[in-house]
Amino acid sequence: MLEVKDLTARYGRAQILNGVSLRVGGNEVVALLGRNGAGKTTTMKCVMGLVLQKAGEITYDGVSILGKPSHEICRLGIGYVPEERRIFGDLTVEENLEVGDRPARADAPEWSREHLFELFPNLAERRRNLGKQLSGGEQQMLTIARTLMGNPKVVLLDEPSEGIAPVIVEQMARVIKELKAEGLSVLLSEQNLHFARAVADRACIIEKGTLRYEGGFADLDAHPEISQQYLAV
């Protein structure tokens, strides 16, 4: 489905990625694990066309998307949920959803506002509030709902559990399982191994812009030295 091969990227003269390869299959949840600064966010931004200086291969359904502008990548069916949430603070919840709205596509489930409000009941109550009036957890839900309005087939979820209350983290986990149940694929970046294990099918670990491990969680648990080396802080 989504395949990244030998991806390198830099900001100015700072090399961030030195050859990242990973694959997200159909209806699969893949966790991209790594410490702060390992290159998780940059990998996602590269897929989304938000990093200019990059090289390697990024294909989606066998078609190269490297170098395409981000709106075209989105229209192919890749949804992006950024780490800093980036909701539109001066727009209401409903208007935020409106920005993400795209026509339905045959190969992906269609999300209506009402369906999303069922999935995120807090948002339903606050549909007329401005984005900046929401709590951190509500903003995180809004940013996911906004991306789902685009009816994506693959969702790039950048650190959804970061900086929100534990009870919301649980809700996030339920949401990710719901996405999988609906038939979506998810690439999830995480620092939290426990959260990743709870929701993902496979794990990729990157460190200093390079892929260090790819495989199942059972293998990872059998070799605790791997997570010790690349994830422990």
């Binding site: 989304m48 981000s70 950024p82 993400g100 795209r102 906004r146």
Partner: peptide, 10 residues
């Protein structure tokens, strides 16, 4: 507010 994000939303 954030034109890059608007682009990433299609």
């Amino acid at each position: 507010q954030d034109r890059e994000m608007v682009g990433a939303l299609g």
